[in-house]
Design a protein around this nucleic acid. Structure first.
Lengths: 339, 339
DNA sequence: TATTATAATGATAACGTATACATTTAGATA
DNA sequence: TATCTAAATGTATACGTTATCATTATAATA
């Protein structure tokens, strides 16, 4: 059938077959490929040559079984179209590879199903789990802790003894946004958040309202919508339609902000920032483009990743490091969507 | 030390431990969890109860070893910030999960290193490999074929007997773009492609030039730049700076097109489409936003994914299906960046 | 050369699962 | 009840690696 009859046509050769060809024991082959030192150069070469000839590659699955770890690190992310998000995922994947591990990628349609997904993840005996923008249940966190699998929740504020949480200080950012608006003379506020990232949006809203309260302002139009450009437009439409006079809108995501801006300009013929000022969140690429020039918040993603991976690698090396919540301050990137 | 002394504090229980508690053999536990039928309901429940009590989860790694397949499907993608791309990756991941497999995600910084990455992928004895926008070497393709691992190259035209290629008909799309421009009366052309997706860009350029040639037009300014918004701007700057009169530019990617458009409008004060018409590629979200309203090409991503996963699942089920190149036509989405 | 110390290698037992085969049990029939 | 058949379960082994321990080969020393 096959044109190739060498050894075992259709499956990858094992170390045993390499050993046979190189005339050494299987253990020696294993030693060569697990990078041990006590090997005579001559035999090492003979083994490598035999391996080359057979197209041998160590079986990571089998290795995982004996070592009781897979070298896999899971990324669990909610399924959302968000440029900022995809940048994050790529960065996370890259860091995992730099840790000499492989990213096992799980997409989670609804946050409700997160526990189910993690349960699946655990079947792979991953070395660690990074959850993006979703909350891990207390029960699941306890279970992971019990079997010594480090979990980092990234970009979602949760308090949980057993897991590491790395997150932006969203409450403070909201507070900063309000103060920034106020300092520029704006007085009639609106907030557009997303129910896709509900917790995060709520935190930003809380900080926003806190600051307004400090200034003696109670009124603030609030819309919570899906995280899309269109929904941003729809939200501002709701706000503007009912004769509610606002002159400043804080959007808990650039995508929402861009949708709102275009609606403000093209549907209502209003000027930004003269009629309405806008602040966004995430500083996605498009925020800096001339048609928008959106003032927005930048998160310290790289520093957050440093913390995440410092924690993970310490855990993986068995070094002591304690869990907790690590908050990072956001920075306003000033452009021209606010006076 | 630990507050929990049940069985084996810090590692996940095995089927053996479950068997012990349920007073059955390990084989029976295995049978319950691999969904076999010949099990008395009573014992099945006893096993499930014991498993529940111990927090047992089958070890996918060990299962992979015996079955000689991991249930993993690798996604190998080049590292690029491209919204269209991230949408694709999410869709691919989702389909993999629907196939009851898990996506193992590899990011490849340079296309040169693809073979190296695939070599790593193969260590995990993945059930299949999906390569996005990168070419697999003939040698590597042959190797994968030999060990019966199906490979699909998505979104990159390559001819290779051993792998399945699913790709848009880029040559034809380029040809369509030129004809579209020409039918609207434009006569002075430029092309901006990306060296990040060089092969794809070249194909689109070839079709574009072919059509121009048919019309008796030889001249066409060409720029090949990295796939970014900024590079798109820089490219059009190069084209416009040297007194080269052009009135139509075809960009092999929306990101490039948006960058070019903003530069045309805000730096040169020219009007789109009156002074210069623009066609993009991919139909990313931003292309439809009012400031751009970009006429662009839409790829039949879902149909392409259908073909990809139909091929994969047939291969995985051992059904016969032959490799080959499957091309999909692109569709122009007409907006107002062309007269 | 004989003796040691050390480096290199081999033999073997895990790791947790699935499965072929052997055995037991339960249900059906006479 | 005895017998037979089929279903349920148990036993034992293999999957490809790593690691421990035992053994052999090599180099260093007297």
């Amino acid at each position: 059938m096959s044109h190739n009859k060498v050894v075992n046509g259709n499956k990858m050769p094992s170390s045993k077959e390499v050993a046979l060809l190189a005339q050494v024991s299987q253990a020696t082959v294993s030693r060569v490929f697990s990078g041990q030192t006590n090997i005579r150069e001559q035999t090492r070469l003979r083994v490598l040559e035999a391996a080359e000839k057979l197209g041998y590659r160590p079986n990571a699955i089998a290795r995982g079984l004996t070592l009781n770890r897979s070298n896999l690190i899971a990324i669990v992310s909610i399924n959302v179209v968000n440029p900022h998000y995809n940048v994050m995922i790529n960065k996370v994947a890259d860091r995992i590879q730099k840790l000499a591990r492989e990213p096992l990628y799980f997409v989670c349609s609804e946050e409700k199903k997160l526990d189910e997904i993690i349960s699946q993840v655990l079947q792979y005996r991953v070395d660690g789990i990074i959850v993006l923008s979703a909350a891990v249940s207390t029960q699941m966190a306890a279970e992971c802790e019990k079997i010594q699998i480090p979990v980092v929740v990234f970009n979602k504020y949760t308090v949980n003894n057993n897991i590491m949480t790395v997150c932006s200080d969203n409450v403070k950012a909201g507070w900063m946004a309000a103060n920034y608006f106020h300092s520029k003379g704006y007085r009639n506020y609106a907030f557009i958040g997303s129910n896709t990232f509900l917790g995060t949006s709520k935190d930003r809203l809380r900080g926003f309202k806190d600051a307004l309260f400090e200034k003696g302002i109670e009124k603030c139009e609030v819309q919570m919508v899906p995280y899309t450009y269109e929904a941003g437009g729809q939200a501002i439409r709701e706000i503007l339609s009912e004769e509610k006079k606002i002159d400043a809108v804080f959007c808990a995501g650039d995508m929402l902000a861009l949708g709102a801006m275009d609606t403000i300009k093209y549907e209502y013929g209003l000027k930004i920032p003269e009629d309405i000022a806008v602040i966004g969140f995430d500083n996605i690429d498009a925020a800096s483009w001339p048609p928008y020039s959106l003032t927005t918040f930048e998160q310290q993603i790289d520093k957050m990743l440093d913390t995440t991976f410092n924690y993970l690698s310490k855990k993986l090396n068995g070094e002591a490091i304690s869990e907790g919540v690590e908050l990072f301050e956001c920075k306003i990137v000033e452009r021209s969507s606010v006076l």
